[in-house]
Each structure stands twice: as structure tokens, then as C-alpha cells.
Design a protein around this nucleic acid. Sequence first.
DNA 1: GAAGTACAGTAACTTTAGTTACATAGAACG
DNA 2: CGTTCTATGTAACTAAAGTTACTGTACTTC
Lengths: 210, 210
Amino acid sequence: MLKEIYDNYGTIFEKELLDEIAAIGIFKEVPEGFKLIEIGEYIKSMPLLVSGAIKILREDADGDELLLYYLEKGETCSMTLTCCMANSKSEIRAIAELNTVLIMIPIQKMEEWTAKYKTWRNFVFDSYHKRVNELLLTVDSIAFQNMDERIINYLKEKSRINKDDTIHNTHQEIAYDLHSSRVVISRLLKKLEEMGKIKLHRNFIKIIDL
Amino acid sequence: MLKEIYDNYGTIFEKELLDEIAAIGIFKEVPEGFKLIEIGEYIKSMPLLVSGAIKILREDADGDELLLYYLEKGETCSMTLTCCMANSKSEIRAIAELNTVLIMIPIQKMEEWTAKYKTWRNFVFDSYHKRVNELLLTVDSIAFQNMDERIINYLKEKSRINKDDTIHNTHQEIAYDLHSSRVVISRLLKKLEEMGKIKLHRNFIKIIDL
DNA sequence: GAAGTACAGTAACTTTAGTTACATAGAACG
DNA sequence: CGTTCTATGTAACTAAAGTTACTGTACTTC
């Protein structure tokens, strides 16, 4: 575990803090599709990502979903942070996008480390900064873009996160993430295929040139 | 100035910090419509709201606008915070919604106070928490709601912020905030009037029962 | 290999929102 | 009082997205 911590956080945290993380953090490995946080849950610990990726989803009253953004290695969930500090319920759902390795930090340490370590404070602020900017990009996407552009961005981002130019999803799954319907997604994907940007198959999509 | 600081922040900050704010903060009074932050600007100080309200806007590449949320007294702009910490450009525009009184804190103090005062840290984290939740509500609104529901929410929120059940805006101005077109807004407002929820006039809208 | 199931393709239609164009009405101002 | 400007009303149309319904096809399972 020590190695993973040092590899991912060695350059941003001082030795003393790294040792505390190693001593207190709980190593956790979850498979793709594992639900880490559910809407309405209270959160007792904060995840530091070591490898893999996590997707963060929003849901409305009718159960309609929307993908907000992904978390990657070296990052943490600022939503979790806010929930921990305010002792409030989670506003989002977190699902492992890949097999993912995490270090869980009990929330009791948060306050202490924030007072004690400048690098921890910077990490937390930086994390907020990134997350707010991701949320703004999500707003841009749904407010200013048409569905065809949103699909292109979705495929690009998914490919980047998975380090794979084949997207292993059904049209229905994409429709859920983009909060649209399967028929609409199939239609627009077909158009992208006709334009030579992608190649459609059963259960996967090959990116040609987006 | 001391009175304003104590009235608004006396219960959340300790005396020592309040004195620092009084000594260092720059009192600023801006009229309705005053532009406080422009997209792409670097930010040198952080605003604490004493009275009034500020609206936070997002803009896309084509210059299309969207209202994100309002800031009220006792709050601060977490976007400004993130920009200060990361020394990055502003992602948003901030315009005074009302005549507004602010205390500007030079960013140099941020780091120092975050290390020194627990109440300051809590204030900053709480501010992030509120802002992220406001952004999520904005996402909900544009992702899950139709324009008629969005208009209703808009009118309600505007009325609450302005403490006035008459909305002093033209249809065009509402269209800009909601990133729609004037004709669409006029059409839907007319429908709301027919339902007896509002009464339309030239340059203002009277809320009857939303 | 037959039956069942999940996925994708497509047509036809509806709904919502955006666009264009023009009419009217109130305010402002000489 | 007539001219001008701005705000609003409305019709007619287009575009985008969502819905319904049915098809074919590939994979699964027995």
C-alpha cells in the first residue's frame, strides 16, 4: 500500500502526511460497476483514488440519471468532502467506471489535517477547483450543445478515461448517461457512422476519427 | 464598517478574525447592474457580501449567457476562491443584482487565515458546499425541467432574492438569463398568465400564485 | 436447433423549443 | 400630436428531441 500512496501522492504531500495516510487510510479495491456512494447516504470516509476511475451521477425525482463527470487517479470527490464537513446527505451517486483502487480516509482526520498540513489544504482546494470546473463543463454541455455534440464529447471522454478507442456500451447505457432516449442515441450514432467518425457494432462502438 | 462586519459575520467568526477583517478588508458599495467580475479576468481579492445580491453567469463561445445562481449576504463567491488559489482566470461573470455592499479581502490573507482560523476554514468549506449544491440545482433545472417549469423557478427565485413579488424585467432579459429566445419566453409567460399564476405588464410581471 | 432475450435499425408521429416575420401598444420626446 | 423606440403578442414555420411501434438480428439457453 505504501508504494501506491507514494507513487500517486508522493509529489504533492509531505512525508509526515504520507505516513499518516499510510497508517490510517484503508486500502480498498472495487470492481467495475461497484456502487461507492448512493444518493441520500451519509458519508463516513473520503476516497483518494489510486487507480481506475469513478463516474459521478445526478438523479432527479423521477429516477432519471445524468452523468456529471469522472474522477481519476490522484483525485478525490469534493462532493464527499462537502458532505463530510456539513454532515449532510450525498447529492450524487458514485459508481466505479473501471476496476478501481482507493484509499479511504476517515472524516475525523479531515479537520485535523486541514489545520496541520498546508499541502493537504492545497490538495483539498485544488480538488474543489477541479470539481467546480467539471460541473461548469457539464452545464455548458447540457445548456449550450446539441445532442450530437454531446454524444461526440461523451465518446471522446469515455475513450480517454478507459484508455480504449472502443466504447463498450449499449445505446441504452449511453442514453441513460446523457439523459436521453435509446432511439435518439441510435439515430445520432448512425449519423456519426455515416459521416465516417465511428463504426457501430453490437455492444461496442469503435471510434474512427472524432 | 465595523458594525456591518459584526452584524453579518459576528456569529460565525471569532473576535480576532473579525478585527483582522475590519483592519484589512476594503469596504465597497456597488450599484445594481455593476459588473464585479468578467470572464477571463484574474482575481485579486475575495468578496464577502454584506447586503444586496450578486448574480453569477456563465457564457459560451458564441456569447450566449446562462444564469447559474445568486449570492446573498453572508456568502462569498467560491469561484473567486478557486481562482485565487489556483491563480487562474475567472470562468464566470458576476453582476450586482441589487445595490450591493461588499468587503473585499486581498487574496494574500486567504492562505494565512485558512491556516490560522478554524472558523475561516469552516466558512470557506461551507461556501464551497453551498455553491456546489447551487450548481447541482442549475444542472437539475436545465437537464430535467421544461422551459415552463424553469420560468416558474426563475420568477420565484428572483422574487425571493429581490424581496419583491413584482419582477422588474423584460421578456428579453429573462430569455438571456434562461438562455432561450424572447418569443419562447413571451409565449410561456402568456400561458402562465392564462393559468392565473402571474399578471403581465409592460416592463414588469406581477406574481399572483406560483 | 428451437425458443427466448437483448440490442439495434427505422418509420411515423408528437412535443418542445427556436426562428422569422409582422402587428400592436405604450412610452419618450420633440 | 405625430414620430420614434422599445416591449409585447401572435402566427406560421423549422428544428431538435422524445415517443411509439414494429422489424431484424445476434446471442443465450435449454
